[in-house]
Amino acid sequence: MLDSESPTKSPMKTGESATRATTRDRLAAASLWLPVVILSVTATLWSRRLPAELPVEWLGNEGGAFRSTAVFSGITGTFALFAAVAGIIALAGVAATIRPWLVLVAGMVGGSATAAWLVAAGFGLAGEPMPASAVPWMVALVLAAASYGVVPYLLSSRQRRVRLGDAAAGVPLGVGEAGAWFTTIRVRVFGVFAAVSTLAAAVIAVLLVPRDAVGASAAIVALLLVAAGFLVFSRLRVSVDHRGLRVVSSLFRFPIAHVELNRIVSARSAELRAAEWGGWGYRVMPGRTAIVVSGRRGILVERDNGTHFAVTVPNPDLPVALLTTLVSR
């Protein structure tokens, strides 16, 4: 009946099989080493022919140490290497749910870094400064090389990777009996962040606005928006009733998320690791949305279109059991 009464416990599955990297994932990670190989091989082969300095003004660099061939190859090589290491990290089970996106970004970084190196080294080998008319094309070429990220993204497997708990039994509700579950989640750290952002805006308003500092007004607006964003999530009211699963900002009294009951196929309690859902706060990822604010467990519902919505709550077994009952009515 009440929280204290035993809702059905739903033991968690380990989820290991769902998070384990597949052969396709390993291929995706391996493809991230291609930029490293290209960079290393070309740098080695061209080392004697390349001048001491490369034409890199087209990248927005006006000179300095960045022009040095050794430094520039080192910087671009480091970017490519980081991207390749990110691919290895993506194979870890904890990164399963963000794996395709991680290898996409890593591929973009690796591709761009390699293209920047090849363009600069190419003009260095030619021994001519880059003509002004070619600059936009070269910049566009480097940006286009970021599309290499699509390769590991498409290679990585598309299987669903949502940790599911066992389906819960329902809360007993008599015919005509109505049930509703409410909880309020207070995220103190978001309140602190909001206070710090507001304080920073106040400091800028006092110190910089009287001096007509460039961008001071924009910074104040941005900081106040950030503070409002933190405040929205600093106190949430989560409810389950005949309308479905709702998350409302308790301070501003507006709904943040609502999954209608008639769209819910199943509800489960689940382990919601921030790392697997893209971090804290309101997370939107392909096929799934989540509000991850506190704790590690929460309610996970599957919609009729196959997508998932999750929200972290303390002791999710009871609301999950109520949802199961209401859905089955």
Binding site: L2, S4, G179
Partner: peptide, 27 residues
Amino acid sequence: MLYKVDPASAVTIADQLAVQVRVAVAD
């Protein structure tokens, strides 16, 4: 907490809610 009300009960709905809150505070 979970709130349950049964309109068919002899106990008024307000009393049903009050009892549930009271029990929840007590436990």
